[in-house]
Amino acid sequence: MKINLAAISMAAVLSTSTWAQAPVVGVGGSGSVNDRLAELERVFNARSQAQIDQQRQLSSLQQEVSELRGLLEEQSYRLEQVIERQRSMLAAQQEAAQQPSTPPPAAQQAAAGSSQPQGSSNAPAAAPAGSDEQAAYDNAVNLVLQDKDYDAAIPAFARFITQYPQSTYVPNAHYWLGQLLFTQKRFDQAKAQFARVVEAYQGSNKRADSILKLGLIAKEQGDNALARQYYEQVLREYGNSGAARLAQENLNGL
């Protein structure tokens, strides 16, 4: 029994001595903490970069959706213009058919043509002006939809508005100009373009979207009360439109 106690005592002494001499390695060691901090930093940086990439992708997708929507609206507007011209031509033809006319002799026709003032307008003479107007507008639109050259598109639309103030494309040009300025966060300048569409072109197919954009600008500038007014105006005046759906979504987010 004494031998066992001695052995146990000796073992305890040896165990204590060995434990005292052993190096202390634990979670609280400086190397372990530094490693964990480095790992956490790597994870944080990776997540931050992923969020940045997602935000960039979202912004890019939003811009593409806006461009596609603009292209669709543009094509719809042009189709409406073509249909309206065809209706006008058909009405004119029907009216002419109902009114009998006696064409003048060839000599009288020639004399009438020679006596016509040089500056008078006729169909062949009006074609170049209309062609130039259409080409100028198409060029500005293509800078946005095809070339993605937004910096060049801004002055192109501004020139079009100045050169062809009576064009049926002017409200569209104001809207495109506002959209480009909005994308560049030039909110005050964009607001002036959208407000022009809303106030001066009541029948424009861009008016609902212009009111919506005024709401978005108000929100960006921190005026949620004004933004709410614009969103509610869209819902009130264009309740069944795509702009109304977006207005409701933004209204819910205020």
Rank of each mutant, 00 (worst) to 15 (best):
A190Q: 04
I52S: 12
P105K: 02
E73C: 04
Q118Y: 08
P23H: 04
S59W: 10
D138S: 15
E80D: 14
S101R: 15
R159W: 01
R186M: 08
P23A: 06
S120N: 07
Q86E: 13
F44K: 07
S101D: 08
A112L: 11
E39D: 09
A173C: 11
K206S: 08
D35C: 01
T16N: 10
P104L: 12
D138P: 01
E220S: 12
Q229H: 06
G130S: 09
S88R: 12
Q81T: 12
A153Y: 04
G26W: 03
A20K: 11
R69A: 14
V33A: 10
G119Q: 10
A129C: 01
S76A: 13
D132C: 02
A244C: 06
S66M: 14
L180N: 01
S9Y: 00
L61T: 09
R69W: 11
W19L: 15
A22H: 11
Q49E: 12
N45S: 09
E237Q: 14
A127S: 08
A127H: 05
Q51Y: 07
A135E: 09
E74K: 01
G242P: 02
R159Q: 10
V198H: 04
L37N: 09
E84K: 13
A152S: 15
Q98Y: 03
A127K: 09
E95W: 04
L216C: 00
Y201S: 08
Y231S: 05
L90V: 09
D223M: 01
L235I: 15
H174V: 00
G215F: 02
T102Q: 14
V170L: 06
P23N: 02
A97Q: 14
A158N: 06
L216D: 08
P155R: 08
A225Y: 04
Q49P: 02
A218F: 05
V82N: 07
P124C: 02
A153T: 06
N205W: 02
Q108Y: 00
N34Y: 06
E95D: 10
Y150R: 06
P100G: 00
M1G: 13
L181K: 11
Q202G: 11
F194T: 03
I217C: 08
P124W: 04
Q98P: 01
S210D: 04
S76T: 14
A136K: 01
